[in-house]
Nucleic acid binder design. Structure first.
Length: 1045
RNA sequence: GGGCGUAUAGCUCAGCUUGGUUAGAGCGCUUCCCUGAUAAGGAAGAGGUCCCAGGUUCAAGUCCUGGUACGCCCA
């Protein structure tokens, strides 16, 4: 049953933030979000994965960006009838959390943590995570991001951890989880290695001492009479110098300054030595130098085996330095490889905390970076320093604590992602990236350069590596996949064990028939593996009851979205884990956003004081405005600046224009007691204006749908904004009189139009559209859903889209634009009616009678005519249409165009309008041209106000007679009376009585047009001769008073 | 050092895929107009070496090559 209820009142003025709070309450009361998930059993699924924010620190405006996109498309797809699960998630583990807690407790490194107690420390980490989640939830709710925060996945939950274990054990069984001793970037403060993608985030430009050091040769042909010149930017590694590498392909030469002789690579002589050096003429191939011995620069530590000779290595380059490269295998991946090949010892005088062992002379106990200075000074004092320069370069730092990293040899667990590199590339090939360039650019490059995933972390707050090792036979290793498996191995029920350190560390077991006890490898894993596991771990797959079904119907995801910094973060870990475990990437479409910058174009930072926090922004401008900005202002793929100006413009231009159109509609529907249930004329029977605006609404529906299917919110937004502008400032403006009179066609048309627009805007601006839905649609129909977000996405009716009518309407608007310009040019006020406006004959012919009337009324002229009927008033001009001519004439184009311009335009015009073709002379030849090749403009000759532009011309007849003048006065009078009505606080439908007094032409005008005026100002009586005028207009010589009738 | 992106009005940005006549919008500024919904709307004006240099083409903001600046990423 359809009710005949009328609209709820819609105030013209609205406080959007207040409106939004009310809508939030409405959604909470009605359980709207839950209802949107209550789809039919057979509803197709559209899967979205929430990339978990690190629940560390407070949410910033940049968090709103991705969360807008994570909301818009699920809402859109839900309206299209899909079931879209949206499970919130929180990334709980990892170094960021540990660092924050350390800071809070005033700690400075791992010893402090161990003294405090791992159990207590991890409890603090858990607390910190829970605390920060609250702030994110508040922001998420306020911005209208519908995601299930009541049942989030949290990477620290036991079920989640067990899922991650299962994935790791799957990878282990494939032989892809292995331990290796490798040189890896290592943070001495945090006491852990960093993965490649963490490393990527911490490069900083710093200045290091760059030293050129003499290494005196002690064997070979140059023994005792020359030194090798060796360059390094890490003097601290010279303490453990083990060898010097030369490139076997290079030639090395001797150079002298008269006092000493140095050996360097031929191509680097000038760069390394500078002025004043001459070659002795002796040279050596790199291969000849193998195993020459030398005096090492420092004799501070013992070497357990012979060392300190020249080795050969292909990786030595001639770009920097001297072509002779110092080797210290504990501190360089290349060094390690080369030295291993020569069976050289790996000597490491530095403790895991980054300090030299206490018993090392000179630098004992010093931090490795600090030691640079002492060591350089010592080299200089002993005459070994050839040159020292400040060297500015980009050096990796810990991305959290900014400590310079060491490359450090440590045992570590790796996932051999290089073994599945081809699969990753193939999966990426099948993935749609938005923008497309990321796929084979930034991300594709990254995959091509894939290296093994350094997984283990010597830390505390993370998913424990589920590997137990036999303490008697370390080659015996077990990787468990669940607490259940651990229970069966230990023979104890461990199902309630907190699978975190230190509790898990205490679990040991023995295996029958094997000596020794299995103890857990103490590492935790990279938190990126946690987040990359969310497609299955969010359901506790495969252990939790029901998780298999949930997982299988939601893998892979159709859609994920994060900012561009996640290319090497979550986008990678998600694809890598999916491919490693299931041999299939976990997402099909990925939207990759640019970063949000402050209004000054810089990153927001406390330091610069340019931070805009999301909650205050939404309290001031509203969440809809912020959402619109994120989705529709500028390109989401590019970095964008956000500021108050941009947001208030969105409010004024888009949101309030839409709002006011609905308020207008409700006002006159109410005034005329119209309801949507009233019978509406058939579409074909409606005026052109109505058929046009409704047809364009259907065109908009198609275009917005297409744009959103391509994840192009910017295009959707600009289409909607343009339509809303046309609706308000052309359709409603031109149709006002019909609304005043309660015209059923106009009211039905605007109702239907607003219905479409409201649906189309709903995913982008869910609050204001919900308010409108409640007041205009839910209130008037029992058949419609109780929320716009439960409504069905509209399907465009192509049969209502009329291209020809749209072309006419564009032309009409164009003519009006030129007509207004002509009025301004002539200083002829719009209120003064004119006899006629004249347009080009072509334009006139294209316009229907209805549209000519619209134009005449809008321009306040009595008639619209064509130059054809104004006879010899008109001159013509002609010019070539290059776009067409170019296709036909190629190189001859400019000549033909010149010939057209030079021809008699009047003749061309008549030939073209007669036969459709005309001829011009080009280089003595006659060339035939058609209407499309020539642009003809018409110009009136005298006494007219004329504007012509781009081939269109509008002229106004400025001659006035008494009748026109009186009509002008009458309209002036109407205008001031309307203003008086408004300032008296009258309602638009209130009737009035009017008394007036005036003299001369104004009095004549009022007498002549009494009926018109009464009609316009809703006067029941008009009396001449006001004794006590409440309103006077001296310019018009008019005094009047009015009273509510 | 390498990769990617960006560069158009005082500001924020479209346009570049598919070359075409006088390069657009909004904000801001000046003047005027319109208003029976509007916090709105309209017209005109001022404001542009479309980053630079070559090239292709009848024709380049648009395509190609090289460079500069800035940003992000990598080493």
């Amino acid at each position: 049953m359809t009710s005949h209820a009328s609209y709820r009142p819609v105030p013209a003025h609205v406080d959007l933030p207040v409106l939004e709070r009310e809508i939030l309450d409405l959604w909470a009361d009605q359980g709207t979000f839950a209802a949107s998930l209550d789809t039919p059993q057979n509803a197709p699924r559209w899967t979205f994965y929430e990339g978990p924010p690190t629940a560390n620190g407070t949410p910033g405006t940049h968090h709103v960006e991705a969360r807008v996109f994570k909301d818009v498309f699920p809402r859109f797809k839900t309206m299209q009838g899909y079931h879209v699960d949206r499970k919130a998630g929180w990334d709980c583990h990892g170094l960021p959390v540990e660092i924050a807690v350390e800071k809070e407790l005033g700690f400075n490194g791992k010893p402090d943590i161990e003294a405090y107690g791992i159990a207590e420390f991890n409890a603090k980490c858990r607390e910190a995570v829970v605390r920060n989640v609250d702030l994110f939830e508040e922001m998420t709710d306020r911005m209208g991001y519908w995601v299930d925060m009541a049942h989030p996945y949290r990477t620290m939950e036991p079920a989640y951890v067990e899922s991650v274990w299962w994935a790791l054990s799957t990878i282990f069984k494939k032989g892809l989880l292995t331990e290796d001793f490798r040189v890896a970037p290592y943070c001495p403060r945090c006491g852990t290695t960093l993965s490649d993608h963490e490393l990527a985030q911490g490069y900083e430009t710093i200045t290091d001492p760059s030293v050129y050091v003499r290494f005196p040769l002690t064997s070979g042909p140059l023994a005792g009479r020359a030194s090798m010149l060796v360059w390094t930017t890490t003097p601290w590694t010279l303490v453990s110098n083990t060898a010097v590498a030369v490139n076997p392909e290079f030639t090395y030469v001797l150079a002298t300054d008269g006092t000493e002789t140095l050996l360097v690579a031929e191509s680097l002589v000038g760069k390394a030595l500078g002025e004043g050096w001459t070659l002795t003429g002796e040279s050596f191939a790199g291969t000849e130098m193998e195993r020459w011995t030398y005096d090492r620069p420092f004799s501070l530590i013992e070497f357990p085996a012979p060392a300190h000779f020249v080795v050969l290595a292909d990786y030595v380059t001639a770009e920097d330095g001297t072509g002779l490269v110092h080797q210290s295998p504990a501190f360089g991946a290349d060094d390690m490889e080369v030295c291993k090949a020569y069976d050289l010892p790996v000597v490491n005088p530095i403790r895991p905390d980054g300090h030299f062992e206490d018993d090392v002379p000179l630098v004992g106990g010093q931090f490795f970076k600090t030691a640079d200075r002492v060591l350089a000074d010592d080299l200089a004092a002993r005459g070994l320093m050839f040159n020292e320069l400040a060297y500015e370069h980009s050096y990796p730092h810990c991305w959290r604590c900014h400590t310079p990293l060491m490359y450090y040899a440590l045992p570590a667990w790796y996932i051999r992602t290089t073994a599945v590199k081809d699969r990753l590339l193939a999966e990426n090939e099948g993935t749609s990236w938005f923008p497309e360039t990321i796929k084979n650019g930034r991300y594709g490059d990254w995959l091509h350069n894939n290296i093994d995933w350094s997984l283990s972390r010597s830390r505390y707050w993370g998913t424990p590596l589920p590997i137990w090792r036999n303490d008697v036979d370390p080659s015996q290793v077990v990787c468990i996949e669940s607490l259940a498996e651990l229970s069966s191995l230990t023979g104890r029920d461990l199902s309630d064990l907190d699978p975190h350190r230190p509790y898990i560390d205490e679990i040991t077991f023995e295996v029958d028939g094997q000596p020794g006890t299995y103890r857990r490898v103490p590492d935790v894993i990279d938190a990126w593996f946690d987040s990359g596991s969310m497609p299955f771990a969010q359901w506790g797959y495969p252990h939790a009851p029901g998780s298999k079904e949930k997982f299988e119907q939601a893998y892979p995801a159709q859609y994920i979205c994060e900012a561009i910094d996640q290319t090497r973060g979550w986008f990678y870990s998600l694809m890598a884990v999916g491919t490693l475990v299931f041999d299939q990437s976990s997402y099909e479409n990925v939207v990759c956003l640019g970063h949000i910058l402050a209004e000054d174009g810089k990153k927001m930072s406390k330091h610069l004081g340019n931070i805009l926090l999301p909650m205050p922004l939404m309290d001031e401008h509203g969440a809809d405005a912020l959402r619109w900005f994120m989705a529709c202002s500028g390109s989401p793929w590019a970095p964008r600046r956000i500021g108050h100006t941009a947001l208030s413009e969105i409010v004024r231009k888009v949101l309030l224009t839409y709002w006011n159109t609905t308020a207008f509609h409700v006002l006159y529907a109410g005034a005329n007691e119209w309801t949507p249930a009233d019978p509406a004329p058939a579409f074909a029977d409606r005026p052109a204006m109505d058929r046009w605006i409704l047809g364009e609404a259907h065109r908009l529906t198609q275009q917005v749908t297409d744009a959103l299917e391509e994840f192009d919110t910017q295009r959707a937004g600009s289409l909607i904004a343009a339509y809303v502008d046309l609706l308000s400032n052309w359709y409603v403006r031109r149709s006002r009189r019909r609304f005043w009179s309660g015209d059923a066609s106009a009211l039905a048309t605007l109702h239907e139009t607003l219905h479409l627009v409201t649906l189309l805007m709903a995913p982008l601006t869910p609050f204001i559209t919900e308010r409108v839905w409640q007041d205009l649609f839910a209130a008037t129909s029992d058949e419609l859903p109780r929320s716009v977000h439960l409504a069905t996405w509209p399907v465009a009716d192509a049969s209502l889209v009329d291209d020809d009518l749209d072309r006419q309407m564009r032309l009409a608007r164009r003519v009006v634009e030129l007509g207004r310009a002509a009025r301004a040019e002539a200083k002829a006020k719009t209120r003064q009616p004119l006899r006629r406006a004249v347009v080009g004959s072509q334009a006139y012919a294209l316009l229907s009678e209805e549209l000519r009337a619209e134009i005449a009324e809008e321009l306040n002229v009595r008639a619209l005519e064509s130059f054809e009927t104004t006879g010899d008033l008109v001159d013509h001009s002609a010019k070539g249409n290059f776009r067409n001519l170019g296709k036909r004439f190629g190189k001859q184009t400019p000549v033909v165009a010149a010939a057209i311009a030079a021809a008699d335009a009047g003749r061309l015009a008549s030939e073209l309008s007669g036969t459709g073709t005309a001829t011009v002379e080009v280089d003595g030849e006659t060339v035939s041209v058609g209407s499309d090749d020539v642009i003809i403009a018409e110009h009136p000759r005298e006494g007219w106000s004329v504007v012509n532009d781009q081939g269109e011309t509008v002229a106004l007849d400025l001659e006035l007679d008494d009748d026109l003048r009186r009509a002008g006065f009458a309209r002036e009078a109407i205008r001031v009376i309307q203003e008086a009505r408004k300032s008296s606080g009258l309602d638009v439908s209130d009737r009035i009585t009017l008394t007036w007094s005036a003299e001369g032409p104004m009095a004549e005008a009022l007498r002549a047009h009494t009926e018109l005026i009464a009609d316009e100002v809703l006067a029941t009586t008009i009396t001449e001769g006001a004794e006590t005028a409440t309103f006077t207009d001296d310019d018009l010589g008019l005094a009047f008073s009015l009273a509510k009738a």
